[in-house]
């Protein structure tokens, strides 16, 4: 029988939490091995970055939803970290198989990769819970149901991340994890929003990359970006 919107939202949350029940909020043994195999071990940077981004996330969560909800923000972040580690491990396994390498030093020492991956994981968590709080109006830490205010592209601002870099992880993230149809649809919506609008905003990294591409062909006239 078809589920009510509330039941569907609850099921979605249970699925996410169930999928992560055996995931830790620290790197697994397998993931730690990938870190150790790097020319430069990224472990300490990864942990420090998570602490910094965690504080930023919880603070902004509290500012958006209400100061009583900072603890709730920390819970969301912890769930996001579990998903981040889980997807990272799956991505690395897939890359190892594809490229026949075990040293991913450049990728794992790239702060943008980690921030993008964490942002995507948190977007999944926020979208999952956001649906629930929207549809169960009245249950909150004391205020209007506002977790939908934290839907994409809110996370980009919190992490000072460009849409262009966030875009890079979306497809691999979907491939790496068994996300629900609704969440895949949500990430697809984020992807389309980036491609259609956000990536073309003034100051976007995309224009610099286009300029670099065109510098290879001096005779070609480059259009100035539209404001």
């Amino acid at each position: 029988p078809p589920q009510t919107p509330v039941r569907a939202a609850m099921t979605s949350i249970q699925q996410l939490r169930g999928d992560l029940i055996s995931s830790g909020d620290q790197p697994s043994t397998n993931l730690a091995t990938y870190f150790k195999n790097c020319t430069v071990d990224p472990t300490q940077d990864v942990l420090k970055r998570l602490e910094t981004l965690g504080q930023a996330f919880s603070q902004r969560f509290g500012q958006t939803v209400g100061p009583n909800c900072v603890v709730l923000g920390k819970q969301r972040f912890t769930l996001g970290v579990k998903l981040y580690y889980k997807v990272m491990e799956a991505m690395l396994k897939s890359e190892e198989k594809r490229l026949s390498v075990q040293n991913f030093s450049k990728l794992l020492n790239d702060p943008t990769f980690h921030t993008s991956l964490l942002a995507c994981a948190l977007e999944v968590v926020m979208a999952t819970y956001g649906e629930s709080s929207f549809k169960t109006a009245g249950y909150n830490c004391g205020g209007e149901p506002s977790e939908t205010d934290m839907r994409f592209p809110w996370i980009l601002d919190v992490f000072n991340l460009t849409a262009f870099n966030f875009y890079k992880v979306i497809e691999s993230f979907i491939k790496a994890d068994s996300l629900s149809k609704d969440i895949i649809k949500h990430l697809e919506t984020c992807e389309n929003l980036i491609m259609e609008r956000i990536a073309w905003r003034t100051g976007s990294l995309l224009f610099e990359l286009l300029r670099q591409e065109h510098e290879g062909g001096a005779a070609e006239q480059v259009e100035t970006p539209a404001s």
Partner: peptide, 21 residues
Amino acid sequence: SHDYHFGLEDHEGISELFDCD
């Protein structure tokens, strides 16, 4: 099932997207 379109080719992955190839 979903209808997300996977655009990456077999020789493309996260390593290439972050210039790590």
